[in-house]
Every structure is written in C-alpha cells, then in structure tokens.
C-alpha cells in the first residue's frame, strides 16, 4: 500500500466503512505504524462518523418561528418600556482598503473599516489566514461618551443566519476567528442600543 492511500480522502472512505473488508484491514494495519498526525486524523474521522450516526440534525418547519413570535408577543405585551432601545445604522467614515459590499469587497490580505454612529465608533479589521483562506475578523467599539464602556454583544450574520456571536472585553475589543469568506452583516448591541453595519463582503 502506498503513502497516497492514507490521504484524507482514502481515510474518509475507510472511516465511513465504504472499503471492502480486506482493504479496510490493510489500512488499519498500516495505521498502526503511521505517524501521530495520520493516526489522529483517522481517530477524528471515526469519532465524527460515529457522532453523525447517533443523531439527526434537522431544521424545524418554516412556520414555527412565526408561531413562537406570536406566543412571545403575548408574554412581552406590557413588559416593554417604549423607546428604551435605540436602533442605529452605522455610517462608513473610513474605508482604508475595504468598503461595504455595495461598493467593493473586502478581499486580498485584509484591511480596516471605521464606522461611526451618534453612540459609538466601530473599527473592523480583516485578516486572511494564509493556511486555509479563512478570515480573522476583529475590532473595537469606542463609545462616544466618557462613561465606563458597557459590554456589547457582536453578531455576524449571513442573511438571517447567525454565523458567529461574541462579546466585547473591557477594552471594547472583540474577535472572530476562521470566518469563511462571504457577505456579512454585523450587529453590535447592548441593553440600550443596537447598531447595524450594512453588508460587507469579506475576503472575496
């Protein structure tokens, strides 16, 4: 058996149980003498396939979210304080090498965007990971008042799907690692304010 046969594709065939018994046995013998990284690959694939056999991952019916929104509305009525949440859309004030999707994509090696609102300024930095083409996205939120900065939640959204969520630290900094290239909206929120950053094409 050649080294090529222990490549990821072949190992996946083995771990899935697609190979004839004799061929699978040969691979197992070969794995005993393989390097640690190859054995780790094989072990992970086995664990992954076992996990997929144990569970079903399925999306609920399309109408369910609307039904639940109605149920929540009944709970929420009377609990809201009108005007307590301020919703803002951030304006791009400095594009550097990046600009919103409608204008230009944030591709190449990376760059910085600065957004402003009446409540806070937001800096976004994008860096491509050379080993796999994924992106590291980090940034910082600078509240415009002199008060102690509050914690913000930061979400990246693709359409309505939440791709990632994190929170700012005590310096207002946040980071996402290994974000697949694509077009994203970014939502920054606290108890008092929601700031929406319009779609940005990252890493195209």
């Amino acid at each position: 058996m050649s080294e090529r046969e222990l490549n990821p594709e072949y190992l996946a065939d083995w771990a899935e149980g697609r190979l004839p018994e004799e061929e699978a046995r040969t691979i197992e013998e070969r794995l005993e003498g393989a390097d640690e990284a190859t054995r780790a690959d094989a072990g992970w694939l086995r664990a992954f396939f076992q996990a997929t056999r144990d569970v079903v991952l399925d999306d609920p019916p399309a109408g369910q979210r609307a039904e639940l929104a109605k149920a929540f509305e009944a709970y929420a009525r009377g609990r809201r304080q009108p005007g307590s949440l301020k919703r803002l859309t951030a304006t791009l004030s400095f594009g550097g090498r990046l600009q919103p999707a409608a204008v230009r994509s944030a591709g190449g090696a990376g760059g910085q965007l600065i957004y402003t609102t009446e409540t806070a300024d937001i800096a976004l930095n994008v860096r491509r990971r050379p080993e796999n083409g994924m992106l590291n996205l980090d940034g910082q939120i600078f509240p415009n008042d002199d008060e102690e900065p509050e914690a913000f939640g930061v979400q990246i959204l693709r359409g309505t799907e939440e791709v990632g969520t994190t929170a700012t630290d005590e310096l207002g900094e946040f980071a996402f690692e290994s974000v697949p290239p694509g077009e994203y909206q970014i939502l920054v929120s606290s108890e008092q304010v929601e700031i929406l950053i319009s779609p940005v094409e990252l890493g195209a």
Partner: peptide, 21 residues
C-alpha cells in the same frame, strides 16, 4: 424578560435546530 422581540427571535434562531433535532 424586558419584552424585546428581536432578542427572542435571536434566541429561537440560535437554538431552534438543536431543540428540533
């Protein structure tokens, strides 16, 4: 708990697949 519908929507969107699965 303050009645913010968008927070509820996000909570449901985040966990609906887990709960349904």
């Amino acid at each position: 708990k303050k009645g913010q519908a968008r927070a509820w929507d996000r909570l449901v969107a985040k966990y609906e697949r887990l709960v349904f699965s």
